[in-house]
Simulated assay, not measured.
Amino acid sequence: MNKQGPAAQTLIIRADGGPVTGAGHLMRTLAIAESWKRRGGEVFYLSAETTSSFHDNLEQRGMKFMAIAADIGSDADARETIALAEKHEAEWIIVDGYSFAPVWRAALAGAGLKVLLIDDLAQAGPYRDNIVLNPNPRAAALDYRFEREDPVFLFGLDYALIRDEIRNARVDAAPGPEPQGPTPRILVTLGGSEIVSKTYLHVAAALAAAKGEAVELTFACPDKPGLRKNIAAVLAGSRCEVRFPARNASWGRELARAGFIVTGCGGSVFEILFLRKHFAAIALADNQRLVADYLAASRFARCFEAAALAADEETRALLAAETQTASSTVEPGPDVIDGKGPERIIEAMLEFPSGGN
């Protein structure tokens, strides 16, 4: 590939997201897709499961989408993926998801495609992929079993996947919280998968029970049947003024306007660190453990377990106290992410010569 950039090359991204798994894999790959597009390349998403809001995201960015009819990670899935890549003369494919086994990825490589695998857990080996990406801070400590003579692994916060709207939010605003006015602003964002619905309610209960001044409490949660209604019911009569962002709201703007954020230990953590916000983090699943441990050890954020919030009134009180203390802080958080991760990833891809694998 031309070292100057992808020019008219098409980048294929194979990732899925929906009500059960959430949209994390789809949304984080957008950071690389935007950088590729900015250099003059085209981007084509392939998904077996996605959401209408993500389709809107792609349309706004001039990117294309095709639905996969086959079962995720099946031989038929690989054949459909290869066929689309060949049709558009793509050289690179980015694969993000837990269902793409080594044999599936080997089929792509056998068809002449270069594969960049995003893998948080080091459980998809052995690794023969051209590039393995894990932007989590402790990725290098995991046991990746590489079977290439020349493996390229991109590990750590230098490769954090920061999308353009988040980068623009930092440019447009001073670091740290915006001026809060008379009412502090707290944002709660735990993702959109089915497993987090109850955790949203536990966070609402914690903040409803807290005493003190009034706060504006924004829940960036999916508009699933009953969830927003139940959150509002939990907070009825409390000190909290509750709001739910519109579907087309700017996510960068929502993060930028918050004085304090309650988040899961997924991709939003890196966006929040980039914006130098103060926050508390909740470990929602096993695949978030490394990030939770890093945040706790570095003291960048206080971390909580979702199970403890559900079972323990004292833990909920600690979360509420954390939001009260930190939402009044005016100093920005630590400056540990520079936002250039997507560009570094593209540069690593461009290092590979055209042809061969």
Rank of each mutant, 00 (worst) to 15 (best):
C240I: 02
K3G: 07
Q288D: 07
T189H: 00
S327V: 12
H25E: 08
P179N: 11
G237W: 09
A311I: 08
E305P: 03
A348Q: 12
A174V: 05
E165D: 15
D119G: 11
N168D: 13
R257I: 15
L116N: 05
I337S: 04
Y294H: 15
V242G: 04
R289P: 01
V188R: 01
E313I: 12
L227T: 02
G252D: 07
G356P: 04
A8K: 11
H25Q: 10
G22Y: 07
F304S: 02
N248E: 12
R344L: 14
R253D: 15
L275S: 10
F300N: 13
A204H: 01
C221D: 03
A258V: 07
A140W: 05
T329H: 07
V171W: 03
W251C: 04
I166Y: 01
A111R: 06
D96R: 05
I82E: 03
F270V: 03
G226T: 08
T50Q: 01
G40M: 11
F44D: 00
M63L: 12
S327H: 00
G192D: 07
A249V: 10
P334D: 12
A301Y: 05
F274L: 09
V262Q: 00
D150T: 14
V262M: 02
Y159D: 08
I195Q: 10
A169F: 02
A285P: 06
P19W: 08
A174I: 04
A205R: 11
V171S: 11
A124R: 15
A256S: 14
L309R: 03
A210R: 13
